[in-house]
């Protein structure tokens, strides 16, 4: 049934072009992963990335995606939530450790906010810098640059793009939910693993699988900047990275 429901939702999105966010109850990676984030898609993080810059070995690319499941064709008319602080968090990690210590808190960060929604929605950049508040609260750092949605711009040493992109995540979510139904919102049916194979559960994934995110878009915040700036800010080359969204109310 879940697969049927998902299939219908996809069809609705692709053919009717409707915004299926409010009624579409599914999530992948971290898409739509709680009632709170479902209610505020502009604050709903889907995926973080950090990888070596393809065009310059001295640079790093840092990104976070939000606003899951933007239907095909609607990327350019979907905007960031002006009430949200989008934050990339960093903390230095002991050089000799492969895994971080149990104490990780942001000691360096980059933030974004967005102005009035529209085709030239302003995008503000704050930091990188050291936070005055840490843990699960934040305050804005000093403003370091401003641009507009869907147009690359620079802020300090940072090259920035903030806007609609193809959802880069790939996953056969429909089959995953058939195997583990209680991972999905609104479904408390227990998994029948490890009894899988007894005839009541799917026999694992299909080969080939099908990317559930195909055709969907997200809003991406993408930075390319010198690795040296992160090393300096974090006190060393080994760094923990995670992303958060914040609002004045926490909802």
């Amino acid at each position: 049934m879940k697969r049927v429901f998902i299939g219908l939702a996809v069809i609705a999105a692709l053919i009717l072009g409707t915004a299926l966010y409010a009624t579409h109850t599914t999530r992948a990676s971290d898409h739509q992963d709680s009632p709170v984030t479902v209610g505020r898609p502009g604050a709903d993080i889907t995926d973080p990335y950090i990888f070596p810059a393809p065009d310059n070995p001295n640079n790093v690319v840092i990104a976070m995606d939000v606003h899951p499941l933007i239907p095909s064709g609607q990327g350019p008319t979907t905007y960031f939530d002006p009430g949200v602080i989008y934050q990339m968090n960093f903390d230095g990690v002991n050089e000799n450790q492969m895994t971080p210590s149990t104490h990780i808190t942001q000691t360096f960060e980059i933030q974004f906010t967005a102005g009035t929604p529209g085709s030239n929605q302003p995008i503000m950049v704050y930091g990188p810098g050291h936070p005055t508040v840490s843990g699960n609260q934040t305050q804005l750092l000093a403003l370091t640059g401003q641009g507009a949605i869907n147009q690359s711009f620079t802020a300090g040493h940072m090259k920035i793009f903030a806007g609609a992109r193809e959802d880069p995540f790939f996953f056969d979510l429909a089959q995953f939910y058939k195997i583990l139904p209680d991972r999905d919102m609104g479904n408390s049916a227990p998994s029948c693993l490890p009894k899988i194979g007894n005839g009541t559960c799917p026999q694992g994934f299909n080969n080939p699988g099908m990317d559930f995110l195909k055709g969907f878009n997200v809003l991406s915040l993408i930075i390319e900047m010198p690795r040296a700036d992160l090393v300096a800010g974090c006190g060393g080359p080994k760094i923990a990275y995670w992303v958060t969204t914040n609002t004045s109310s926490g909802t």
Partner: peptide, 10 residues
């Protein structure tokens, strides 16, 4: 602010 965390992901 201070602003309260709504979502976190790694």
């Amino acid at each position: 602010g201070p602003f309260l965390q709504l979502d976190r992901l790694n």
